[in-house]
């Protein structure tokens, strides 16, 4: 992932916007000139008016999907960081649990979604799906980060902060101290990288589960709107929902990139500008 620069030239913003505007204009022109019917390819202007006309419906769906995504991400952070900390504190726990986390990751979740829908209420199943895909990047990145403390710093810690007694409780206390003083800050960059991946995945998980849930109805999200619009051949609304979904992904990415920047701007190489 490209590092976020503090100050970038205006071209980096202007150029992609110009390309985007040109593409939309070309799309509009082709649809009008060739007279393509809206149920095959609606013009951008029609998508925009549909967005306004159907806003109440789309807004409710947007909030549903956004809520699922954010809740899934939050749970993934809690679970991923919690498990990573647990694994880093005890080798026994690491050996017994980590393989299952990997199994969870390599199984394509879309295959689990129908099962989840059988065992859980629909909204819980969708949330569980979002959580499952977002969980692993948080876990593996945080684990990597927690292990990336400079060895000499750990030696300093041993020199100055090691427990005076060798009781298991004292050893655990020392590990917690090392965790808080050294491992936690050292793990922050890797954790944030995992979080940015997990943000996108959580949205994908929510969309996949909504699609698998299909026509179940109440409190339906954007992905369900897309399926529904397809059945009804309401292609302009399908596109409008798609635009909102893309906007959600972009917004999520920007928010997490900003968080990353905010937390690391003073000290991390990926952010501090090299030239001076």
């Amino acid at each position: 992932m490209a590092p976020v620069r503090t100050q970038s030239s205006p071209l980096k913003i202007v150029l992609p916007l110009a390309v985007f505007a040109a593409a939309v204009a070309a799309w509009e022109a082709i649809v009008r000139l060739k007279g393509i019917p809206p149920y095959i390819l609606p013009a951008p202007s029609l998508i925009a008016t549909t967005m306004v006309a159907d806003w109440l419906l789309l807004q409710a769906s947007l909030l549903t999907t956004l809520g699922t995504t954010l809740a899934g991400l939050a749970l993934a952070v809690v679970g991923g960081v919690g498990l990573a900390v647990l694994l880093s504190l005890s080798r026994i726990v690491e050996y017994s649990l980590y393989p299952f986390a990997v199994v969870l990751q390599v199984t394509p979740v879309i295959a689990i979604a129908p099962l989840l829908l059988i065992y859980m209420p629909q909204d819980v199943a969708v949330l569980a799906c979002a959580w499952l895909v977002a969980f692993f990047p948080v876990l593996s990145n945080t684990m990597l980060g927690l292990q990336s403390v400079d060895r000499n710093l750990m030696e300093l810690f041993e020199l100055y902060g090691a427990p005076t007694s060798q009781s298991p409780l004292a050893r655990l206390g020392a590990r917690l101290k090392a965790l808080w003083y050294l491992r936690r800050p050292a793990a922050l960059p890797a954790f944030l990288a995992g979080l940015r991946i997990a943000g996108g995945l959580s949205l994908i998980g929510a969309v996949v589960a909504e699609m698998a849930a299909g026509s179940a109805g109440a409190g339906s999200g954007l992905a369900y709107r897309i399926i529904e619009s397809q059945y009804r051949l309401n292609i302009p609304r399908l596109f409008a929902a798609l635009v909102l979904l893309a906007a959600t992904g972009i917004g999520l990415f920007l928010a997490l990139a900003a968080l990353n920047h905010l937390l690391l701007r003073r000290w991390h190489e990926s952010i501090v500008r090299r030239d001076r």
Binding site: D150, N152, L153, E155, L156, F157, L159, Y160, G161, A162, K177, Y181, L182, P185, A186, L188, R266, W267, H268
Partner: peptide, 30 residues
Amino acid sequence: RGEIGFVFQDATLMPWANVADNVWLPLRLR
């Protein structure tokens, strides 16, 4: 251990902490 100061070949500072907080580390651990 409290009577020993150790300096490594690398400075081995904590990149996330400023200079004062880095110097604080041994005292903080105590």
